[in-house]
Amino acid sequence: MADDLVFLMGKTEARLPGDRRYARNHLWATLQPEGVWRFGFTSYAIRLMKDVYFLSWSIDAGDVVQLMQEIGHIETSKAESDLFAPLAGVLTRFNEALLHDPTPINTDGYGAGWLFEIQGDGSALMDVAGYHAFLTANWDNTQRILKGKINSHE
């Protein structure tokens, strides 16, 4: 198993566990029985969003999803975003508990704060080194996006 890695966002360390895989839209994935992948936000994503206020899904469990299909929306203390499917397949289950209280996303993002499960081919998901390299390569651009957003609100 790969070692955990750390990505440095300014002074903040985003911990990236080595025991799982990663999607480009900042979700981790662990393989469950029957080819089902469980997804949740990486600590990198959570650092950008801060406290999650509200999570909503625009599709139902059991629906077929395309890669990068819009499936929901999140509102946090810092941000809002649409959410997109990290994998093509069948979205088998949402973490129902989060719909009542999304706190576990912040308190236990790599565990109880998981978001949903998709049955599909996860072979294109990155390993931890790949995700770290992806974050590194995109950090400048990410800052530009964030700054653009911030400036547009001033």
């Binding site: 480009r24 994503a45 950008l48 819009e70 941000a79 809002e80 975003s81 997109f84 990290p86 964030l146």
Partner: peptide
């Protein structure tokens, strides 16, 4: 809302 950052670009609208 006009008050929060839109992270859609980073989360997959991201692409």
């Amino acid at each position: 809302s006009g008050l929060k950052i839109d992270l859609t670009k980073l989360f997959g609208g991201g692409d």
